Amino acid sequence: MTRQTILITGAAGGVGTLLRPRLAREDRTLRLLDIVPAVDPQPGEEVVTGSVTDLDTMVAACRGVDTIIHLGGQSREHTIDNVLELNVAGTYTTLEAARIAGVGTVMLASSNHAVGFSPREGIPEGGLPADTPARPDTLYGLSKVGIEAAGRLFADRYGLNVICVRIGSWFPTPPGVRGLATWLSPDDGARLVEACIAAEDPGYRLIWGISRNTRRWFSLAEGEAIGYDPQDDAESFADQLIEGAEPDFINDPELNRAGGTWCEVELGKPMM
Rank of each mutant, 00 (worst) to 15 (best):
V115E: 00
E46Y: 04
G179E: 13
A199H: 03
K144F: 05
G44P: 07
N82C: 12
A221S: 15
R257G: 11
M271H: 09
R135Q: 12
R178T: 02
E121Q: 15
L153C: 14
P136H: 00
H78A: 15
S169A: 15
G14W: 04
S169D: 13
A225I: 04
L71P: 11
G73L: 06
N112T: 15
R135L: 06
F218G: 00
K269H: 13
L33H: 00
I207G: 05
L32M: 02
E194H: 06
S219Y: 03
R99Y: 11
R99P: 09
I8S: 07
T182W: 03
D252I: 11
T138W: 06
L267W: 13
A101R: 08
A199L: 00
S51R: 07
R20W: 10
Y140A: 00
I6K: 01
S219D: 04
V39C: 13
G244K: 07
R257L: 15
I8H: 06
V65Y: 03
N256W: 05
V165A: 03
G146Y: 00
G102F: 04
R20E: 14
Q4C: 03
A101F: 08
M1A: 14
A238W: 07
D252F: 15
G141F: 10
A114N: 02
T91K: 03
M272R: 14
E77G: 00
L95D: 10
V83N: 07
P119F: 05
G227E: 03
L55E: 08
I147C: 00
T57W: 04
V83D: 05
A98S: 12
D137K: 00
D233C: 07
I197Q: 01
L95E: 07
R178Y: 01
E45F: 12
G260D: 10
V39P: 06
D81H: 12
T105P: 06
L220A: 05
R205Q: 09
R257W: 13
V115C: 12
E243V: 05
I197V: 01
I163M: 04
I167W: 10
L84W: 12
M1F: 09
G64P: 06
G244I: 08
A114C: 14
V83I: 08
L160F: 03
A238C: 09
N161R: 08
R257I: 06
A97N: 06
E125G: 11
A225P: 10
D56Y: 08
V36S: 05
P247M: 13
K144S: 00
S185I: 08
F237K: 02
I6M: 09
A150F: 13
V39G: 13
A130F: 02
D239S: 14
I226P: 02
I167Y: 14
N213Y: 05
V59S: 07
L192F: 04
S111Y: 10
L220T: 01
F218E: 01
H113T: 11
L153F: 14
R99L: 11
S219F: 03
P202R: 07
S236C: 14
P172R: 15
A11N: 03
V145T: 11
E121K: 14
I6H: 00
T261E: 12
